[in-house]
């Protein structure tokens, strides 16, 4: 087998924000991410974030599919099938790295990787960004975007965002 250790840049944790022109990128640590599937998951008391909603609460749910949400910073839930609620739940707190891109140039950077527009709403925040499956939505303020990506691809996404940020 071919030794490729020199072909791949060793991963660097994103301790400090990366500064781009008119935008910056940092990693976010969340208390919890839970994947919840079931026929009624879109009906709950928590805010359900679609695109281009801006999530403003400490705990919220991301709308992924008609039968799936991701609950952010919610309570600890037992994993598995809950027959009473008719829901399947799995902890995915370690499965997704959460990045945050903020600034005037942020949306333009994202447009390098996905066909996205504030004028074109979507019921799901799941999409492909630079070919990677992500959950993408606004958080806190209008020019701040959170991106959940499979942890094994977080280096790749950071590299793509960095390259995209270099274009004027």
């Amino acid at each position: 087998m071919r030794d490729d250790r020199h072909l791949w840049t060793p991963p660097k944790p994103l301790w400090n924000p990366l500064a781009f022109k008119d935008a910056n990128l940092c990693a976010v640590t969340l208390t919890r991410q839970s994947l919840i599937s079931g026929t009624n998951v879109r009906k709950a008391d928590l805010p359900l974030i679609e695109w281009p909603d801006v999530a403003k609460d400490a705990t919220y749910r991301l709308s992924l599919r008609r039968d799936r949400v991701a609950e952010i910073n919610g309570d600890i839930r037992p994993e598995g099938w809950n027959a009473t609620k008719g829901e399947a739940c799995s902890d995915v707190s370690d499965g997704y790295t959460v990045l945050q891109l903020k600034g005037r140039a942020a949306l333009g950077i994202l447009k390098r990787g996905t066909e996205i527009s504030l004028e074109h709403p979507s019921a799901s925040v799941a999409r492909k960004l630079f070919g990677l499956d992500v959950w993408l939505y606004r958080f806190g303020v209008e020019d701040q975007f959170r991106i959940h990506v499979a942890r094994a691809y977080d280096e790749t996404l950071i590299a793509h965002l960095t390259t995209a940020a270099q274009h004027r």
């Binding site: 399947a88 995915v92 370690d94």
Partner: peptide
């Protein structure tokens, strides 16, 4: 329901 937890 199918959850892919490979990364978790």
């Amino acid at each position: 329901f199918i959850h892919d937890l490979t990364m978790q």
